[in-house]
Design a protein around this nucleic acid. Structure first.
Length: 157
DNA sequence: GCCAACGTTGGC
DNA sequence: GCCAACGTTGGC
């Protein structure tokens, strides 16, 4: 069991969208960064915990949680000429890009703002703090637990 | 909208 | 295989 943080622009996909998909969940696709791709493809497993983080918006920070319901499979968008995620170098035999499915598991009572996380010395080693631009990143078990104590998730399912 | 950080591309 | 140019991310 591992833990992760997924960034998303809420104008595109927000925690509410994930929540609205209910137990059916949704596909987390369009990852086109190799480092993020490698985590996704090689390490994400069914049941892993995911923090959902909103970027490029007014309230930047962690807003809720989800869990992985399907491990990596080839991202169909890379083969779709009409998709902005189309990649001419990808073939069905040798896909370049992968996606997973996730489902909503909870909303934080209060979002954990980036400014707050940055100011917390216990989180100075978080990938989020050390490496700004990475849309899928690992979270340690200690960080996962500590962030939950900070936020007190109310779990629904 | 600006700009810093950083990943990727491509010429040599 | 180096490195400059370029593109993208993402906070502010």
């Amino acid at each position: 069991m591992n833990y992760w943080l997924f960034k998303t622009e809420p104008d595109d996909i927000s925690l509410d969208d994930i929540k609205a998909a209910k137990t059916k969940g949704l596909r987390w696709d369009g990852i086109r960064n190799f480092q993020a791709r490698n985590f996704l493809r090689d390490q994400l497993a069914v049941g892993d915990g995911v923090f959902i983080y909103h970027s490029q918006c007014k309230t930047v920070g962690i807003v809720g949680t989800a869990e992985v319901t399907r491990a990596a499979y080839a991202d169909p968008a890379q083969f779709d000429k009409d998709s902005k995620y189309f990649d001419a170098k990808a073939t069905t035999d040798v896909p370049r890009w992968f996606c997973v499915d996730i489902r909503y598991t909870g909303t934080l009572k209060k979002p954990l703002l980036l400014s707050q996380l940055k100011a917390d010395p216990r989180l100075s080693d978080m990938v989020l703090i050390k490496q700004g631009r990475l849309s899928i990143q690992p979270v340690t078990q200690q960080e996962w637990r500590y962030l939950h104590t900070l936020a007190q998730t109310e779990t629904e399912s």
